[in-house]
Amino acid sequence: MLKPIIDYSKCITCGACLNACLRGGLEIIDNKLTFVSEDDCTWCGVCEDVCPTGAITCPYTIVAADIADES
C-alpha cells in the first residue's frame, strides 16, 4: 500500500493536507495524521504543496532505465 511519507516530528495536525487530498485519503485519528484510504496514494503531491511545515512528502527516487531494469 502506497502512502505519503509523514514526519510526525514536524506535523502540527493543522489539517491542511486532508482537506486538499483529492483521494480523501488522509484523516486525523487520535490527534495523529493517518493515511486511511483503501486505495494507493496517487503521489500527486498536493498534500506536500499545502503542508506549512514540510511534514508530508511524496519523494521520488530517480533511476536510469538500464540501472532500474538490472535491479
Partner: peptide, 9 residues
C-alpha cells in the same frame, strides 16, 4: 516513466 515513488529515465 513514473511509478509512484520512482521516476525511470
Amino acid at each position: 516513466e513514473i511509478n509512484h515513488g520512482k521516476i525511470k529515465l
